[in-house]
Amino acid sequence: MGLEQYKDVWVFIECFQGKPKDVGFELMGQGRKLADGLKQNLCAVVIGKDVDEAVKEANYYGADKIYVVQGDEYANYSSDAYGNVFLQLCRKYKPNTILIGATINGRDLGSKVAVSLRTGLTADCTALFLEEETGNVVWERPAFGGNLYAQILCSETRPQMGTVRPCNFKKPEKVESNNAEIIRENIKMNSEDITTKLIEFLKSKDDLGIKIEEAEFIISGGRGMKAAENFAMLQELADVLGGTVGGSRAAVDAGWIPQTKQVGQTGKTVTPKIYIACGISGAVQHLAGMSSSDVIIAINKDASAPIFEVADYGLVGDVFEVVPAIIKEFRIAKNL
């Protein structure tokens, strides 16, 4: 089968307990650029139980078509059930390109589908664009610990697939007047064919506050914080601002903060309104996870620290003097 028979750009809208995750809508903006370049449709794929909200939002974020598969067996993600649905849809409609969020479930689904379809999958992409003359997507991802970026093509097979980090792109503007074609597929699966079962969902204690990937204000600490107890000062500033605390890999490796709070190449990619880096030198691996923040404020006593090259505002000084002063000023301003 020739590559020209594969059409359209698909975006998987991942849901959790019926609620759509933002990463799918972030990818709708990138999918639109690819679809327009290919002169093809942008399609959303929604799988789950009670996913009407996700379907409605996928329409608002610009889908031309929405493929919907609902059923009790899809209430919770499983590799068997979701993989089966996605494979059946791919074999029936033959998409050209598939974008999936690089979440735990997205990574699992992408690899299962790619292997079954005998096509390529580029994992953990941070950028992508189209070679319009060839129709190939250029998938860009960090390599060798973030010291260089690789550009990967899937030129011989289709669909071309990639998983993309959450919070790497901004969500496009909603268009509530959009009128996508909704295609509902009745794909059922026997419970005995689903080899993994969800017994109970336990929420991590690290998820009880504001998730770092969803926070508008992030106060991050690095090696310059010197000890775990000093992160209480950053938490105080985060509480005043209504944000959360993050950290560099050095802080995580030292055991000062949990790995779920790590920002950077081997942690989370974040795009808050304000990112305050405290005692962080600014290694390229860390910058890869936060350089798309709206405003970056760096506090470091080393005036030559690389973090100042990307910061919108830089304060050269002792973090243990600067941060308490900032907290004091915000408390005065808020009458706290």
Score class of each variant (00 low, 15 high):
3 L>H: 05
4 E>L: 12
9 V>Q: 02
13 I>M: 07
13 I>N: 04
14 E>D: 15
14 E>H: 05
15 C>W: 13
16 F>V: 08
20 P>F: 04
26 E>L: 14
27 L>G: 00
29 G>H: 06
33 K>T: 13
36 D>H: 12
36 D>M: 11
37 G>Q: 08
38 L>G: 00
41 N>E: 15
42 L>R: 00
43 C>S: 05
44 A>W: 01
45 V>M: 09
46 V>E: 08
50 D>A: 15
52 D>N: 13
52 D>F: 05
54 A>Y: 01
57 E>S: 14
58 A>F: 07
58 A>C: 12
59 N>C: 10
59 N>Y: 02
60 Y>I: 05
63 A>N: 06
65 K>A: 12
70 Q>W: 12
71 G>P: 05
73 E>A: 11
79 S>F: 02
80 D>L: 10
83 G>R: 13
83 G>M: 05
84 N>C: 08
87 L>F: 11
90 C>G: 06
91 R>A: 06
97 T>Y: 03
107 R>A: 11
107 R>Q: 11
108 D>G: 09
110 G>S: 09
114 A>T: 09
115 V>M: 09
118 R>T: 15
121 L>C: 07
126 T>Y: 07
128 L>I: 05
130 L>E: 10
135 G>P: 08
138 V>G: 03
138 V>Q: 04
144 F>W: 13
147 N>D: 14
148 L>D: 02
153 L>F: 08
160 Q>I: 12
162 G>Q: 04
162 G>N: 02
168 N>P: 00
168 N>I: 09
170 K>Q: 15
173 E>H: 03
175 V>H: 14
176 E>A: 13
178 N>T: 04
180 A>C: 09
185 E>T: 01
187 I>S: 03
190 N>C: 09
196 T>R: 15
199 I>L: 14
201 F>K: 15
204 S>V: 06
205 K>G: 05
210 I>S: 12
212 I>H: 02
213 E>K: 09
214 E>G: 12
214 E>Y: 06
216 E>I: 04
217 F>I: 10
217 F>A: 06
218 I>D: 00
218 I>T: 04
227 A>R: 11
228 A>C: 11
232 A>N: 14
233 M>W: 07
236 E>M: 03
241 L>G: 01
242 G>C: 03
243 G>P: 01
247 G>V: 04
248 S>L: 05
248 S>G: 02
256 W>N: 01
256 W>E: 01
256 W>L: 02
257 I>Q: 05
257 I>G: 00
261 K>Y: 01
267 G>R: 02
267 G>Q: 07
269 T>E: 01
270 V>L: 00
270 V>G: 10
275 Y>A: 08
281 S>A: 11
290 M>Q: 01
291 S>T: 11
293 S>T: 01
294 D>Y: 08
296 I>M: 03
298 A>H: 05
300 N>E: 06
302 D>S: 07
302 D>R: 11
304 S>C: 12
316 V>W: 01
319 V>M: 13
321 E>A: 11
328 K>H: 12
329 E>I: 09
332 I>Q: 15
335 N>A: 12
336 L>E: 14
